[in-house]
Amino acid sequence: MNIKKSDSENMTAYKVRIGMYMILLYALVYFGFIVINISNPFLMERIIFGGLNLALVYGIGLIIFALILALIYNSMCSKKEAEFKDTFSKKGDK
C-alpha cells in the first residue's frame, strides 16, 4: 500500500510539475501578445503571410497553440499513468 502511495505521489508531483512548465510557457506567449498590443499596436497590422496580419496570425495561433500544448500534456500524463499502472501491477505480482 505504501509503495502504491509513494508511486502515486510521484506521479501526481510529475503531472503538477509538467503542468507548471506548460502554463508558464503559454502565459509567456499570451503576455507577449498583450505587450505587443500596448507597446507597438501598429505591428499588429503588418501582413505576415497570405494576406493575414500579425494580429490574426498571433490570435488564431494562440488558440491552436493551446490545443497543441494540451495534447502534449495529456500524452505525457497518460504515459506516466500507464507506467504507474505497470509498476503497481508488477509490484503486486511480486
Partner: peptide
Amino acid sequence: SIGYLAGWMVALFV
C-alpha cells in the same frame, strides 16, 4: 475569444 480560450490553459494545467 482569445482570452476565454487562454483561460482554459489555467484550468487544464493547474
